[in-house]
Design a protein around this nucleic acid. Structure first.
Lengths: 146, 146
DNA sequence: TGCTAGTGTGTACAACTGTAAACGGAGGGC
DNA sequence: GCCCTCCGTTTACAGTTGTACACACTAGCA
């Protein structure tokens, strides 16, 4: 299982992802720079972005560090942890029987590097050794299969 | 505001997933049966579930068919379409460079059947033929990499 | 024929999300 | 010293989500 002290990564809303990605990429960033960067992609007002920043701080996903009159924002969780957390959360909603198919669809649609593919292949061969013949549907309380 | 024909899969909230999974599994179902099944997993009141049903109909994810004085509910999209849609939506938020790593994490954590693994391996070998050496980060408007 | 039980509709209400205007304090330029 | 600009804080407001009470209708039962 993963590390994670808090069992569930906070929900990150779509708009919040946009800010977080910039913060992760820059490491530490002032609101001004973040606003400027973001406004090259989204036509959000300064105010909107400031609100989102504050909410992220309140949620504990960002921390601030006072530099002179301004704040430097930093993420409190790694991008990888956030991504894995969100992906696992999504997969929790899916029928156990059909997770494989969904993964297959993703593999087909996502752009992967040679290296990604090699790692995925390695992980799959490893898993193949102990993989079950079939997985049961867990959509209903009884054992009815879908 | 007027509603337009949905171009992508509607957002499905976590609670809604629970109802939808039952509907998908049963094909067609009366609210009573759905409520009984759901209440074996969640302690939601009848009322709550009826509200969720109504909202799903309004969103266009379920349709009704009047049988005597009750409604039979059916899903308007396939489970596969919904799962793929949601998964792709999630991946849209991730840094292009790191989608592979997230997929790897999922492959490691999800229970897969022998058959799932075989299909994934096949898809990967196929992709390997044309996969790029590397993928660029698309988190910032300029070409700065993360 | 009036009552009951089952099913759908209206309404409610707090928390969260998307979006943003307006306000307040401090440092810099004139 | 005064005003402007920058940055953070307050407030706002509509839409969505989670959760649920209360009511209305209809068909069958007493």
């Amino acid at each position: 299982m993963s590390e994670s002290i808090q069992n569930s990564v906070q929900e990150i809303t779509p708009s919040e992802w946009e800010l977080m990605r910039i913060v992760w990429t820059k490491g530490k960033i002032y609101s001004r720079e973040l606003i400027d960067l973001l406004q090259e992609k989204r036509s959000w007002s300064d105010s909107t972005i400031k609100t989102l920043l504050r909410r992220l701080v309140k949620k504990g996903l960002l921390t601030t560090e006072k530099k002179e009159r301004r704040f430097l924002y930093t993420a409190t969780i790694s991008e990888t942890a956030a991504m894995n957390g969100s992906a696992e959360q999504l997969f929790d909603h899916l029928c156990a029987m059909k997770k494989g198919a969904t993964l297959l669809n993703l593999v087909e649609h996502v752009t992967l590097t040679q290296d990604d593919i090699a790692q995925l292949q390695a992980a799959l061969s490893r898993k193949a050794k102990t993989a079950p013949k079939q997985v049961d549907c867990d959509c209903l309380p009884n054992d009815e299969q879908c």
